[in-house]
Design a binder for these strands. Structure first.
Lengths: 339, 339
DNA sequence: GCCGGGTACTTAACCGGGAAAGCCGCCGAC
DNA sequence: GTCGGCGGCTTTCCCGGTTAAGTACCCGGC
């Protein structure tokens, strides 16, 4: 089945391909009658302009790129990315932009992909996830002049646009809530230490605990997997002066932590309160349901996509603050049992 | 920052762009010395051939498409798709193919996307998920002649290539295992009834139960969400002659079912055995850990991608059978308590 | 009756590669 | 010494759109 070109439409309409181009793109230069005739013929034979030809003369690829730098296992287990992609996609497809996805092994590979995409003009811009401290992708993107929106921050995004959420505020709110319940020994199981938002959360946690006069604010680093979350929890719960509340940097680790507590004979929330970051439906499926810090991730993705399209369109790079995660108290948090 | 073209390389090398093209593509027609000089210059100035220009003359987009037709919420919660994408991506990026992703609302939209992609030559082929009985996408793809690989089956794929896994065999194995443990009342919480693999599983379940002489093989339809899984479980466990074992079509529903059982005061596995389909890490995070039917999903995706590249390359469309899911017994299954 | 100006087109150049065809100089064969 | 053939290029055209520049025609005004 061969695909019709603009020349086929032109021939059927008895006009030149220039006229067809004007008609299809809503440009002046053809009469209304001719325009309608051309549109009808194009629809009838199922004409779609060849994207390559259009890109070649127009210099726009009508596609944006997203690279994911996580191993397959943690990519699958975290609802975050798929929800983010849904949101990004909803925004992009409404404007007929395509999303090109690439899973990479490390930042080196990611930078190489960015360079290639830009050189090939395969994408008009990229979305950047998992920002790190002194992220090497930022200077490269600035140097290339490749439109980009960083999903994360604040800070560390150079002159690039970004969409960020105030994780520090959310964490402070959580610590204050736990302290209000009567907790004095609060620990945290953090995400990958290399990621900037982990550092931001750790800093905020430490600071909030000090301000509220809590003894030691332990953060155990982890990698978002259930195994690591379980291991970290075991370590915390086995220590002398074990915490009465633990905050987890994602829901999977929180669920693993809940299991460990139960396996060690500790009642949740009686002996241990648990708070999860990322309020996926999983939090409501376990017993007790988890108190969680949640926000609208698809909307986050949609905002990032919208901002990227704006940057591609020439708008100045801004730092857009998205909704702050809010705490939904459920059955996993309660005042600590008097000991 | 402007991007170098083949003409820039040619000028620097003091040859024509034809010569550069031959040199870069490993064609005969240039001396080895010239080829090396051109390659060095291209690398030095960071030349990448413009993908649009190459597509325009070569008629290949070097990209494949994947459409996902699920609401954002269930997309996020199911590790399946993200793992599948990881596998697809690994295979594609090894061959420098890009993956273009689109999330659509329904099959109508999906067909429209396929037509557009093909007309625009944006992709060289597509992967098709969530096959339905009498799937309307199949005849359209056949008519368009768009290379495609269906992820699912067997059956219903027309003349399209497919990669499938023998869900019926896996389900039979599971039923036989439960019967061997002593269960006589087994129920199932199924996935979306419209999906072909749900129908295949339901058919196999009913047939296996009849063959083994089990009274009634109830399948309660659901939609893969935890809420629906919980509701279905409540219904099953409230009925007279309630089942002693339940098989769930995904792990999220199984976890929800486990919660419901515990909330109703039933011991798992003492009063109720639970088997989950899709053995994600979540299955090992709950108490008791779930007996699950698992297989290597990234590999499944990689096989599909490899087959699609073969079909694009002109190989005849074949039906490739992938690994059958295997049962990993864990703590959620045991002989039923004598009642 | 001729000119100016707008409308409705056509023509042709261009985007950046790929590749067929052409050209030139050199070598060996007869 | 002349011709064929080949290596190593260059020239040219092509892919399928967009768009600047050109053209034919019509209409109104003076």
């Amino acid at each position: 089945m061969k695909r019709p070109t603009i020349a086929d439409v032109a021939r059927r309409a008895g006009v030149s391909k220039g006229a067809v181009s004007y008609a299809l793109n809503g440009q002046p230069g053809v009469s209304e009658a001719t325009r309608q005739r051309i549109l009808a013929i194009a629809a009838e034979i199922g004409f779609n302009p060849n994207r390559a030809a259009r890109s070649l003369s127009g210099a726009t690829a009508d596609a944006v790129g997203l690279t994911l730098c996580r191993p397959a296992r943690t990519l699958g287990i975290e609802p975050f990315f798929m929800e983010l992609i849904s949101g990004v996609e909803a925004e992009l497809s409404a404007r007929s932009y395509a999303l090109t996805l690439q899973v990479v092994a490390d930042q080196e590979a990611e930078v190489a992909v960015h360079r290639r995409w830009w050189g090939e003009r395969r994408v008009d811009g990229v979305l950047v996830c998992d920002l790190r401290a002194d992220d090497r992708r930022v200077p490269v993107l600035e140097e290339l002049g490749l439109p980009a929106v960083v999903i994360g921050g604040p800070g560390g995004t150079g002159r690039l646009a970004s969409v960020w959420s105030d994780d520090a505020a959310a964490l402070v709110e959580t610590v204050e809530y736990l302290v209000a319940l009567g907790h004095r020994r609060i620990a945290r199981v953090g995400g990958l230490p290399a990621l900037l938002h982990t550092a931001i959360r750790t800093e905020a946690f430490t600071e909030a605990c000090r301000r509220l006069g809590l003894a030691d604010a332990v953060t155990v680093p982890s990698d978002y997997t259930g195994e690591e979350g379980a291991r970290a929890t075991r370590r915390l719960l086995s220590s002398a002066g074990r915490p009465t509340a633990v905050i987890y940097d994602n829901d999977v680790m929180a669920i693993a932590g809940l299991s460990v507590a139960q396996e060690m004979g500790l009642a949740v929330p009686g002996d241990l309160s648990i708070v999860a970051w990322d309020d996926s439906p999983l939090c409501q499926l376990v017993h007790p349901p988890l108190t969680a810090l949640g926000r609208d991730i698809p909307a986050y993705g949609a905002h990032a996509a919208r901002q990227l399209l704006a940057v591609i369109g020439g708008s100045p790079a801004g730092q857009v603050q998205d909704e702050t995660a809010h705490l939904t108290p459920r059955g996993s948090t309660a005042p600590p049992r008097a000991s």
